[in-house]
Amino acid sequence: MLTLSSLTAGYGPVTALEDVSLTAREGEITAVLGANGAGKTTLLRTVSGLHRASSGTIDLGGTRLESVAAEKMPRLGLAHVPEGRGVITELTVEENLRLGGLGRGGRVSAADLTRIYDLFPVLGDRSAALASTLSGGERQMLVIGRALMARPTMLLLDEPSLGLAPRIVAQIFGLVRTLVREEGLSVLLVEQNARSALSVADHGVVLNLGRVVADAPADELAGDDQLRHAYLGF
């Protein structure tokens, strides 16, 4: 379980997050929604140690994360798929995946790779290709697969649907749902595409200008017309 309490963060004079508290429960998908500039990316970057909070606490299953370095997160069970996917295009598909596995410490076994290739058969077919040759959907699968290589308990996804066709988005979200159901993974899913995100999430949190304006079960949020019109744009 990931719990943020009174988190405040910014860039110099700009405040990007103000007094944000939320919980991503174990074995659930928690969606963080909000318009462009709401502070969603800052939230994830602060959790994974790429950005430092000016105050507040972050707790992952009893471990405090506020001052843990980003490169230590994989060992604590946290995986962060960044905005824009973060495929390392100069490496092959398999090298990207191996890199994900190394984060846990120790060596990467063939079984680890096979598990990902079973989940995403396209990646298996293209394993020796440079990642730069993949399509947008394939890249999204690669970075999720790469994150899974470290066997995380908490997965942070930053706008996985961005730039993908609705069919591919549905496929990827379906896969994430399966992982949560079958492996007990917890997911913090950041999205602007609120409709799709709420259709797959258990719980939703709405950010506006760095503040939490709603925090409720996903179906409740989807049913709240006023909120939908004001912040979610559908």
Binding site: A69, E71, P74, L99, G103, A150
Partner: peptide, 24 residues
């Protein structure tokens, strides 16, 4: 080698490398 892979990852995209646990 694994070290070589980590070095290449750091060179190409240091932020992503850090997220994947590489001591850049």
């Amino acid at each position: 080698t694994d070290v070589g892979l980590r070095m290449r990852a750091s060179a190409f995209n240091s932020e992503v490398a850090r997220l994947l646990g590489v001591k850049v």
